[in-house]
Amino acid sequence: MKYYSEDHEWVEIHGEEATIGISEYAAKQLGDITYVELPSEDDDFIVGDTLGVVESVKAASDIYSPVSGTVVMINDALEDEPNLINESPEDKGWLCKLTNIDTSELDDMMNVDAYDKYLKELS
């Protein structure tokens, strides 16, 4: 299952792990991404913490952790190819994977349909 936050991060749950990224809408709003600051493995985050930074030509944006957990893997490919986030925001452009997650936090997030509706209200 995939869940979305109001800040346009997404979380996909596979067993014990949560993969995190930014939505296609967010990637499009940011434009060409030129730099990504990722967390380090073993970093612990509480929901809402700043997980990293995504920079485009024009601006830098914080990424907030949509769930609490511990980083088990980061997407190293983004270091040399930050534009993977533009090309494939919800697949190859993932940011990191967390473990030790609290699935009850997902209750506060939106599913795809609710997120689509949320985006329509924004525009």
Binding site: G31, D32, T34, S56, V57, K58, N86
Partner: peptide
């Protein structure tokens, strides 16, 4: 216009 569809870098 800050950018068109292709984007700033393109």
């Amino acid at each position: 216009p800050v950018q068109y569809a292709d984007g700033i870098i393109a």
